[in-house]
């Protein structure tokens, strides 16, 4: 009985905390104050760092650009199909994200291969099939290596390094991008609790006013 009361108190407290919780996510990256003259008035706006334009090919051989992702919240990560270390954990966890938003139209997942030489479109398609993903929720993207590495930098993750034993070393981060292409969160994709938080954060983000109105 005592235990029960204890549990009830904890739940109550936790809910109380939740009630006070901020309902928007922070915005990461550099920001600039830009002063412009609009209609003869001076206005100052905060301009946040955004993900630059890119162009890659997905596992179906379709061209995917930053424009293709317009109107979507998306999660990005970096991997390669022959990665022996952290990628299996990352994609086991990403499958949880995939399943959580399977039927939600404006949430997508993109995984950039950092080994495009090996990971051709055919290899990526096979990997996707084996992973058990289909449709257009989760794209595996490949393109020029320099482009991918440069893009990694704009997601604020460290640039992949070549390593004799592991072939490549890279971060296991999942990066959350909003419809304005701003970085809204980074999560360690190898830690299940962080991935649970990512799923919660996507729901919070989806409810923000400038996400529901963005096209």
């Amino acid at each position: 009985m005592k235990k029960l009361i204890g549990a009830a108190v904890i739940i109550l407290l936790w809910n109380a905390c939740k009630f006070n919780e901020q309902k928007t996510l922070p915005i990461a990256g550099n920001r600039d104050a830009v002063t412009e003259t609009v209609d003869g008035k001076t206005v100052t706006d905060t301009v946040y760092q955004t993900i630059p334009a890119f162009k890659f090919v997905n596992q179906y051989g379709d061209s995917i650009t930053n424009k293709t992702l317009d109107g979507n919240i998306y999660v990005a990560d970096f991997f390669f199909t022959t990665c022996p270390s952290i990628c299996p954990i990352m994609h086991r966890n990403m499958l949880t994200v995939y399943n959580a938003f399977k039927d939600v139209a404006d949430v997508k997942i993109i995984s950039h291969t950092i080994d495009p030489q090996h990971d051709s479109v055919a290899v990526l398609k096979k990997y996707a099939d084996k992973l058990g993903i289909a449709g257009s929720k989760w794209w595996l993207l490949q393109g020029k290596k320099e482009d991918t590495y440069k893009l990694a930098a704009s997601y604020l993750v460290s640039s992949p390094q070549v390593d004799a034993k592991e072939k490549y070393v890279h971060d296991g981060y999942f990066i959350l991008i909003d419809k304005q292409k701003r970085i809204r969160g980074q999560y360690d994709g190898t830690v299940p609790e962080q991935v649970t938080k990512l799923i919660e954060d996507i729901k919070t983000l989806k409810a923000e006013p400038d996400q529901t109105t963005a096209k």
Binding site: P84, S85, I86, P88, I89, H91, R92, L95, Y127, D129, K130, L131, G132, T190
Partner: peptide, 15 residues
């Protein structure tokens, strides 16, 4: 564990 999983569950049809 990274490949075969915490509970030996593997990963889809990959592992």
């Amino acid at each position: 564990m990274n490949c075969h999983g915490k509970n030996g569950e593997g990963l889809s049809a990959l592992i």
